[in-house]
Design a protein around this nucleic acid. Sequence first.
RNA 1: GCGCCCGUAGCUCAACUGGAUAGAGCAACGGCCUUCUAAGCCGUAGGUUACAGGUUCGAGUCCUGUCGGGCGCGCCA
Length: 617
Amino acid sequence: MKDQLQSLFQQAIEQLKSDNVIPGDHQVRLMFERTRQKDHGDFATNVAMTLAKPAKRNPRELAELIVAALPADPLIVKVDIAGPGFINVFLAQDAHHAVLNTIFSQKERYGLAEPNSKQKIMVEFVSANPTGPLHVGHGRGAAYGDALARVLAAAGNNVEREYYVNDAGRQMDILAVSVWIRYLQANDVAIELPGNCYKGDYVVELGKQLFAQHGAQYLLSLEEISAADLKRESSEALNELANLSADQLREKEEIAGSHEKLVASYEKKFLEEALDTRIAFVKQTLGEDGFAVFFDLALNTIVDDIRQDLSEFGVDYDTWFSERSLFDDNKIQNAIEKLKTSGDIYEKGGALWFKTTEYGDEKDRVVVRDNGQPTYFASDIAYHYDKLERGFDLAINVWGSDHHGYIPRVKAALQALGLDQDKLKVLLVQFAVLYRGGEKVGMSTRSGEFVTLRELRDEVGSDAARFFYAQRKSEQHMDFDLDLAKSQSNDNPMYYVQYAHARICRVFKTADERTIDTSNIEQADFSLLSRDHEASLLTLLQRFPEVIDNAAANYEPHQITYYLRDLATAFHSYYNATKILDADVGERDAMLALCDSTRQVLKNGLTVIGVGAPEAM
RNA sequence: GCGCCCGUAGCUCAACUGGAUAGAGCAACGGCCUUCUAAGCCGUAGGUUACAGGUUCGAGUCCUGUCGGGCGCGCCA
């Protein structure tokens, strides 16, 4: 529809160019918008106003000339010039009715572009550390990422979904040690779980499970363990604190806010040091294979759980990419070597640094620590290198907004590796701030104090949760009131949209019961659809492909949810104002055709955001 | 201190990427079920788009500053 208008107006503009009204070399940006008000017609363009300056004429005068040069076409019945120079286009009735034929012929494909006709895109999202179950914060990333993937696919892209599993690194070691301590407790060893270990109930379960499988095989006494613990006098952090000069102390206190806060921050560092000592001890005592028993069980159990959780949420991935595989396949080494060759790596203090400042980062970053261990950043360099080498036109990362500071260094790495940094698009999802009874709820996985995605799904259902998340645009901060989400789930607009779909289904069932023949409604006389309600519905049905396009182009699946609400509203109004099945045969069939098309588009739209379209509520 | 994001009706959010009179849902108030599902419909009320400047035919949207909120500034992941 827009395309046809484009070409008609383009002809008019070419005409004016050859008449020297518009400079021939001027690039004309011709845009059509749906109008907000009926007396502005169906479409409006501001082209006369944008051309006013280059053509050195006032906009309304220019609009007259454009309209005069417009070729006649049956599509357009009237063209108005309004306001400061808008050109308002009124379409013929037939043009509105034609959408029904299109929907009948394309059915579940209506609104969707030709599959795989555009780019090959990878969407990586969620990628939460496999150290515990997903919480409701991850839910937003999951709902957004998956809806985005579906929208991009609907717009004709070939889309792959990937989950990057951080199965290497310190957090996983902490998890393994946490499980081991719970295992000792299951063996009646009177050991305490350190405060900075993982405290969730699932860790207790894993400990019990290992006890059942392996008995006392990995048992140590409290005395043996305590003997190896880090003593306060051996702590680097505490020694540093003790040796601060008076000046240094005052300066650091000022930054920390108070003496107590400064001491607390050093105590915290000491506890992390102590935990590292414990990890090293456990690794050494249990041996590589013994430690792997705890590590692998925890990892596999949790990844399986996450996979199932997401699948029940309607999110299924094409690939689960293991961080550890980057080590096994030497991909990290290779990436670092490549950076060395290009001269982007230097050594300082025993560590290897990557000159990210050369590419716009605020400071250089360590890729290999002085102890020889690659950093998380090193993994990420290798991972993104590998990702882009796999041949995607575009790689999208959906990240929590807390990672925004990380973008410049990853982009720096891509540039240094000779890749096109524009092929990586990072989309940030703001944190959902959780409230329960007016109180903010914490979401730390280590503390074990969080509401899981599964709990939310159990209480409100996967569809309602998805719709709720999908309604928000990603960069919008979001207040998530758990009580509200649970108690008022019927207020979720999803039910309103689904209800419209179910109502239409009911109309057709009742038609059946009354032995009304609905098999030929596609051939009905659509010109009988001339009420205001019908015109609104037809316009909305026409808009659906534009909505998909726009949502995909801007990475904004939330546009679909608002569109669906509008469509449902238009239908509910129509339904209340009209007794469809009691109308005369010809009119009735036309109305049924309109209903059937509306049902189809509601279903197509719900599918694009990953929500079901039930036939009854 | 520096950087990123945000600030729109009492609350939660939209606004077709710079367009015409800023819109929905909750909450409030008044109506509509002998009818194809009332999980619905119709109506009333609610706004200096945080504030102050600027850019232009035109600004919630772009620029500058101020205020307020979230997040980030590790040889953590």
